[in-house]
């Protein structure tokens, strides 16, 4: 139910409105609830968006387990692992930024947000080097694809999905960092108060979502049959 609506049926209420309150809402609380629900629904659409690619991943992993093991071994587990740690850390700093905004400590909010952005950029830089290396090795699907293992076609499908999934994820990271830049600027201007810090919280939800996507992608792409594969290669 629209909680605030019953409070004052006259929309030209007698008390001063918060500057962030939009005219079509009755109260900040209602506005905040609408934003929160909207964000969650948006994240559901994101799950479905990645879902199409994950469905393709699932089908071909079941069909081609050998190719999947072989191609997955070609991914750099060290860089992937570092990136996983970087993103988990960034989720922590993001949560701290939301907490600081909630308690009205502007300086802390700004600092935690900057730290989160720095970690996000670190992820993207590492990802850039991983991609560049794949281009050097010609392990990028398309006309120039080269593969010296047993299953060249199937490996190409694996790398199509690898680049599709991680590329889509990286795009979300770039959007996330941009979003945080705007939020940081707003926080520095002192726009947020303990009564209204919805944008910080919503960016936080988005950021955690993008992190969680990576938490799924890392094992799905980097850790296929890794223990078995290592024994086979004899490292």
């Amino acid at each position: 139910m629209p909680n605030g609506a019953a409070a004052h049926a006259d929309h030209h209420g007698h008390h001063a409105h918060h500057p962030a309150l939009q005219h079509h809402f009755e109260s900040l609380e209602q506005q905040h609830e609408a934003s929160t629900l909207g964000m969650w629904v948006f994240l559901v659409t994101e799950v479905m968006f990645f879902g199409g690619l994950l469905m393709a991943y699932l089908l071909y992993r079941v069909w081609y387990p050998g190719a999947w093991a072989e191609a997955s071994l070609a991914l750099d587990i060290v860089l992937g692992g570092i990136n996983t740690a970087v993103l988990i850390a960034s989720s922590f700093t993001m949560a701290m930024a939301v907490r600081a905004a909630q308690t009205g400590r502007h300086q802390h909010t700004v600092r935690w947000l900057i730290l989160t952005m720095a970690l996000g950029l670190t992820f993207l830089v590492i990802k850039y080097f991983e991609y560049a290396h794949k281009f050097e090795l010609r392990e990028v699907p398309g006309p120039d694809f080269e593969w010296h293992g047993q299953f060249p076609y199937q490996a190409q499908i694996f790398f199509s999905l690898y680049f599709g999934l991680t590329g889509l994820h990286a795009l979300h990271m770039i959007i996330g960092v941009t979003l945080l830049a705007v939020i940081t600027w707003m926080a520095a201007k002192g726009r947020f108060t303990p009564e209204w810090y919805t944008p910080v919280e919503m960016s936080g939800l988005y950021w955690h979502f993008v992190d969680i996507v990576w938490i799924f992608l890392f094992p799905l792409l980097y850790l296929v049959d890794r223990a078995h594969g290592v024994a086979q290669v004899g490292v």
Binding site: F49, G51, L53, P141, G142, P143, Q156, S160, G164
Partner: peptide
């Protein structure tokens, strides 16, 4: 969102022969 990603996959398939 599912048809969006499907059309995207179709476009990549067409452009790059994945």
């Amino acid at each position: 969102p599912v048809v969006a990603i499907t059309v995207l996959m179709m476009a990549l398939e067409r452009a790059l022969g994945f």
